[in-house]
């Protein structure tokens, strides 16, 4: 008898996605790593690889030597952080409202949150050009933040809503019964229990913002380019593939590092909230 979870079944179920990720995620990532170590071609792209001597860390050295790149990285992380923070502040009351609505209205509200995805992303950004232009905000850092928040807000609302919806209303009643004011009930019960939702929402906003190039390109000024634009430029405009690859790898490593630190901090500070996450 083959119960679900025995070896052959487990293999059958997990093999296709594993294979897919190996071929279309791990392999390309390794190709990018390799590309970052190669020489740029004379007419763009990559120089032919003749031997191990052709590999080197010149691209990385170049990046680390020029302060401009550090500045763009720093600016990107600030924009991502700010976007995440604004998303949390905007999404929280909305997610809470949806989670507290009657079941029927809840489904409708969730549908409204994801409705913007039904139209093309670029079209919606162009709409922002028309909105921000008359407000004299176009091509400013503020416009970039507005666009980033607009694009990523649903990715904060949905995980937060999923978390808040699972909160046991009896906990808030208990807190109230034990003397907690509305403010205390929020900060001592609702907020700590929603941290897992905030964390997953933040990951879904922070990381894509770092790689987003369309919003800064369309809404931002010349001084507002982020890592995403930089990488895109290396590949499409400058045609310096090793530099573009090195930028990508650097970004990936920094994000993984940040995610690791966050996960470690979360494990220490979030004890008990797994019960509702």
């Amino acid at each position: 008898m083959n119960a679900p979870g025995t070896r052959p079944t487990r293999w059958l179920v997990t093999a296709p996605p594993t294979l897919f990720l190996l071929v279309f995620f791990l392999l390309p990532a390794l190709i990018v790593v390799l590309a970052s170590l190669r020489q740029p071609g004379e007419f763009g792209g990559l120089a032919p690889l003749t031997g191990l001597a052709d590999l080197g860390a010149e691209a990385y050295r170049f990046l680390l030597d020029d302060i401009v790149y550090a500045e763009i990285f720093a600016r990107s992380f600030v924009v991502a952080g700010l976007t995440t923070l604004i998303c949390i502040v905007l999404a929280y009351p909305l997610a809470w409202l949806i989670a507290r609505s009657p079941q029927k209205r809840r489904d409708l509200l969730v549908l409204l949150v994801i409705l913007p995805f039904a139209s093309n992303f670029l079209v919606r950004i162009y709409a922002w050009i028309m909105l921000l232009g008359p407000a004299n905000l176009l091509y400013t850092p503020a416009a970039v933040i507005v666009g980033m928040v607009y694009v990523h807000l649903p990715f904060m609302i949905l995980p937060l809503y999923t978390n808040l919806e699972k909160h046991d209303p009896a906990l808030l009643e208990a807190a109230q019964d034990l003397g907690a004011s509305a403010w205390t009930r929020f900060w001592r019960v609702t907020f700590p229990l929603s941290l897992p939702g905030i964390f997953s929402g933040s990951a879904l906003v922070f990381i894509p913002v770092l790689g987003m190039f369309a919003v800064p390109e369309l809404l931002g000024g010349t001084g507002d380019i982020l890592i995403g634009n930089l990488i895109k430029e290396q590949f499409l405009d400058n045609r310096d593939w090793p530099l573009g690859s090195a930028l990508s790898i650097l970004l990936t490593v920094l994000v993984l590092l940040l995610a690791g630190i966050t996960a470690w901090a979360a494990r220490r500070g979030l004890h008990g909230t797994e019960a509702v996450s």
Binding site: A170, L171, E173, A174, D177, G179, R188
Partner: peptide, 17 residues
Amino acid sequence: EQRPLHTVFQSYALFPH
């Protein structure tokens, strides 16, 4: 929250965190 009485709930309603 201002009544000087407390409740023990059927589900206990202990704060999980």
